[in-house]
Structures are given as structure tokens and as C-alpha cells.
Design a protein around this nucleic acid. Structure first.
Lengths: 329, 329
DNA sequence: CTGTTAGCGCCTTCAT
DNA sequence: ATGAAGGCGCTAACAG
């Protein structure tokens, strides 16, 4: 069933059918009514593919993250999807899982499908999308990169100021009277390095010596947190407060410190990052930095919508993370 | 840039270009080489839309859930996406958020875009997709419905046996020696009703009286759990073990019971459902039923892949949930 | 206000 | 082995 069939049954031409389908003017009300009835009768849906052939767009966008199962990515994706589905777009999600090859595969797919925009969530993408080759591939598609920056005409950024986030987490602990602060780093992304800078900055400003020795590396997750807690306890480092780059790792550590007999926050204060749901599950509940995953999604969507509508999007949008004070500090 | 441009530059016809593009036989190796070089030179990507026009497929599928932010939905979606992206498909995700209207909107969109399949995750969909109208709309698209059943030629089910899941949770508590069991219900979906049946069944088999009075309703989430804990404590019900339909609500209750001075599991045993990440965060860690979100995704993907490949998929696939014993029982 | 026509980019017969 | 031509379903001039 296509517009030819509809036109035949309505005893008119495909142009007229197309006009009523697209609510265009210059259609005799009677014919319009007749066509509409037939449309309804068959519950007729025009082929988006054929339309796309003409209009060069299928009204779809691509959103890429490392892994949807990570809750703050899911939160950002959720908002983007809701914003775009309102406008009749559909969003395809991609899990690249730390692989540059996968990233490029998805990018190629987006080009072939002629999506109207690409949203890249996570600083890892600015590491993957570096060569002229890759940039050239997607030069006709607007790309929003969340928490990353690429200097190209079709690239737009929405930044989360992670440096200031960790900086204020650190300052907050100092202001609370904690003096021997440690920082636990569990990722190797651009964003993780920026967070670390925030910590160093706060310490430098207070002339704290041996900053490098206050930085501990572990792996991401509850287990990584437990391992680093053991490491810290068994080292001879002095500490009374620890800043973490990720909530989940912080929670693992929190559990292990308790198990080893430490009181939180009396013996050691702990602050996390992300404000994920788990922060209100653990005990004591975790003080954390809210980096506003939903707001990030909204702002990315806004920028992309401006572009698809031909408007000039706001440049240099930056989200300031907030501190969420709970029981662990 | 299209195949005409390529053909012109290679001094051949579009048919030949199309042949090399699609690895078809009957093309002179020399010409083939020449064309391939030009293809590479421009990093040429054929338009998936134009291809779709001919082949009637864009190689994409639609996956719908209530909300991607719910972690077990994200887990299922993740696996489906990974499985299909391997085959060059892309998956568009939809958040219907308890709204039948949204559900139908997304279904229409899937029809217009001529997706190759639809995966519906969650029992709520069997309530929304009921009328002949809706069924007729999507009669040409294979639909996999996770945890629901619809008797139509193009519908396929992958079931999670939630009844047996709750049944074994209940049996497990009895076997551990708990005698006064309560069930907390926090949703109003088909799946929630089936879970409840599992609880009732276990009690009936032991000739436990007043089953209805052992069923308590609340709302979903940590707050709903806290509220129901207060309600239970302040009622004059006897209880030493509680079965929950959802982990998150169970955890809210767990926290509140502790706050009100109850020891877990000595004073009250608590068992949840879903095996979400939060179950290993709370203290004591929550015993729960693992309903295998990833496996669900894999099985849905397998069925849909069989269909798209013209094979006959296995019918009546059912996942048996497992009990995960932790500290709360 | 209406209908005819020419594409959109590709695949697929069908001749050659 | 190759190329010309038709068609997928729709939109957008253009002519009436």
C-alpha cells in the first residue's frame, strides 16, 4: 500500500494525497476529507525510508556511550531520548565499550544511515576521534560531545566542570577540618585526569607537600574500592579524608574501612563523585558530587535541536557540579 | 557523491560499481580494482536510505522499555544492542514510561521506519498491546515480547518465570525456619501479579491461613520501602520474614527496619528480587532472586535473529530465576 | 486547486 | 563480463 493506491481509491492524484498527508494548503476540502477517510481506513503510514530518500533525513540521531548499563550514562541517554522523541526523532544507542574500532564502526553506520546528529557522551571520545580520516568521515553531521572538545566546524561541546567538582569536594573536606587528604583515581580517561588536577590544585593552594604521594590508583568498582582501602590502611600513610573520582569505588572503600574497624566519618571521611543511586543505599550514606547527568542530557539535546532547526546553538556551555552533603563526611 | 560519480570516475557503469560494492561475481578483476581504489579514495559509503528503498529494510530494530534508567532494563538492552550491532543493525531505544499513548507512538514510528523487529521488555506491554487496531498495525514486523504473551502469528515470547522466582524465595525462607512471612507488592503490572501468585502458592501449600492479610502494598523505591517498614512495624502483624517484589523497595525497608532497631536477619529476614547492584551495597547485603537481565537480552536477540534469518525460532523459552543467598536472610 | 513529471541513490533484471 | 533501463515510495517543481 502506497500513495498510488490511496490516490487510485480516492480518485485523485498522488500529489493531492501527498498534500493531505503533509497538511499542505491548496486542497479542496471535499477531496481532502475523502482522502483522509481512506488514509484512516487503512491506517496508512507513509514510508519513512522513501521520505528520507527525498528529504535526506530519517529523523534519527545516534547516541554513543561506553556502556548504557552505567547509570549516569543511562540517565543522560534517557533525557536525550525523551527530548528527541517529542519531535518525532528516534535515537539509536551504541555501546562502544572502550574500543576505538567499535567507535569507528558506529560512526560509519551513522554516516550510512545519514543520521541528523551524533551525541557522544564521555570524555573517552575525544581520544578516539582524533585523526583527519575520522573527522572527515563525519564532517557533514553535527556532533555534540559531552565532556570533551574537538576543534571542528561541526563539533559542539557541553562540558561538565569535573575539575571544579573535585576541587570543591577537596576544599569542602579541608573546610570541615580534615587535613590529611588522599585522592583515589580509578580510571584512565581524560575526565579522570582533569579530576585529578582539581585535587592537586586544592592542595597546592594550601601548600601541602608531597602531593604525588597522596594520589592512589586502583581499578573501578566495589572491588577496586575494597582493594584500595586495604592498601591505604596497610600503607603507612597518614589520612583522615579521601576524595574519590567515582561513587562506586568510594562505596567499596567505605565498606572495607568499616569492616576494618574504621568509623566514618570520624576516623576517615569519604566523598564520592556522580551522585548515583547507590550513594543513598550505603551506610553511612555517601557525600558526593552531583554532576547532573539528566541536565547534561537536556543541554546536549538543546544544542542539537538548535542545530537541526537551523539556529545557532549557545557555545561554551558548562555544567557546574554541586556538592551533596550526606553522612560520610 | 553517489554511485554515478564513482562510475564516471572509474569509466564504467553504475551496475559494475554496485557489483563491487556488494561483492557480487562477474566483474573483471582489473575494473574491480580500479573501482575499489576510487571507493577507498573517497571513503565512499553507500546510502543506507537508498538501499532501504530497494531492500525494504534499514537493518535496524526497536527496543522498548518503560525507562532505560532502571538498571535491569539497561542490562537487557545492552546485550540486545551488542548482539545486533555485530550484524550491522542499529537499535533504537524507546522509553514509554507507563504510557500507552507513548507506546503506540513508538510503534507507529517503528512501522514508518520499517524496522526489522521490535523487542518489548516488560510485562506492561501485554496490557498495552491488546486491541485489534494495534495488532494489525504491526502485523508485518516480528515482535519479541519479554515476559509477556500475545497470541499472534508475528509475536514471540521469552518468559521469565517470576512466579517460580517468588515461590522459591518464599520456600527458601520457610526452609530457613522463618514462619510468619509477609509479601510486599509495589507495582501494578502483570509481572507483579504473577509474583504475588508465587507467594500465595507457597503459603497455600503449607496451609497458612489469612494469606490476604500477609500481603502489603506500597509504592516502588527506597521511600516506598521505608514507608512499608514503618507500616508493618506499627501494625500488629506478626512477622519474621518479608518477601519483596523489587530489590530497591526491599532495601528501603531494610534500612528502615535497622533504624527502628530491628536486627536483620535475626529479627526479620528480607529477600528482594532482581539482583541489582544495590543488593551488594546495602548492609547487610541483600539476599535476592536473580532474574538474569543479560540472559533475557541474549535470548530475545537470539529469537529475533532467527526470524530475520528466516529460521524458525525456538518456542516457549523460559528463564528460571536463581536465588542469590547473601546476608539478609 | 490539481495532476504530470522528474528526480532522490541504489539494486536488479534483461539484453548484449 | 557489462550496461541500459525500470522501479522502490515519496516530494517538489511545474504546467495547467
Amino acid at each position: 500500500m502506497n500513495i498510488y493506491d490511496i490516490a487510485a481509491e480516492a480518485n485523485t492524484s498522488i500529489s493531492t494525497v501527498s498534500r493531505v498527508l503533509n497538511q499542505k494548503p491548496n486542497v479542496n476540502p471535499e477531496i481532502k476529507k475523502r482522502v483522509e477517510e481512506i488514509l484512516k481506513k487503512y491506517d496508512y503510514k507513509p514510508s519513512a525510508i522513501a521520505r528520507g530518500m527525498v528529504s535526506k533525513t530519517m529523523k534519527s540521531i545516534t547516541v554513543m556511550t561506553v556502556d548504557v548499563r552505567v547509570s549516569h550514562y543511562a540517565r543522560t541517554i534517557y533525557v536525550i531520548e525523551q527530548e528527541f522523541s517529542k519531535q518525532g526523532y528516534n535515537v539509536n544507542v551504541c555501546n562502544i565499550g572502550n574500543s576505538k574500532e567499535e567507535c569507528i564502526k558506529y560512526l560509519n553506520n551513522a554516516v550510512e544511515k545519514q543520521v541528523d546528529g551524533i551525541v557522544l557522551i564521555g570524555s573517552i571520545f575525544s581520544e578516539f576521534i582524533n585523526s583527519k580520516d575520522i573527522l572527515h568521515k563525519i564532517k557533514d553531521i553535527p556532533v555534540i560531545i559531552a565532556n570533551g572538545h574537538i576543534e571542528e566546524a561541526n563539533f559542539y561541546s557541553v562540558m561538565v566542570d569535573d575539575k571544579s567538582g573535585i576541587r570543591s569536594a577537596t576544599d569542602y573536606l579541608f573546610e570541615k577540618g580534615y587535613q590529611e587528604l588522599l585522592y583515589v583515581c580509578d580510571m584512565d580517561t581524560q575526565s579522570a585526569r582533569i579530576k585529578l588536577q582539581g585535587f592537586k590544585e586544592a592542595l597546592k593552594l594550601r601548600d601541602i607537600p608531597d602531593i604525588e604521594e597522596r594520589i592512589i590508583k586502583t581499578y573501578y568498582g566495589v572491588e577496586g574500592g575494597k582493594a584500595v582501602a586495604d592498601f591505604i590502611i596497610d600503607s603507612n600513610k597518614k589520612f583522615d579524608g579521601i576524595v574519590f573520582g567515582e561513587d562506586i569505588t568510594a562505596i567499596g572503600a567505605l565498606k572495607q574501612f568499616k569492616k576494618r574497624g574504621y568509623n566514618i566519618p570520624e576516623d576517615v571521611a569519604i566523598i564520592g563523585y556522580n551522585n548515583c543511586q547507590e550513594t543513598i543505599i550505603c551506610e553511612p550514606e555517601l557525600t558526593t558530587i552531583d554532576n547532573k547527568a539528566e541536565l547534561l542530557g537536556k543541554l546536549c539535546a538543546d544544542v542539537l535541536k538548535d542545530i537541526t532547526e537551523g539556529k545557532i546553538p549557545q557555545k561554551g556551555i558548562t555544567i557546574k557540579p554541586d556538592i551533596i552533603e550526606r553522612e560520610s563526611t
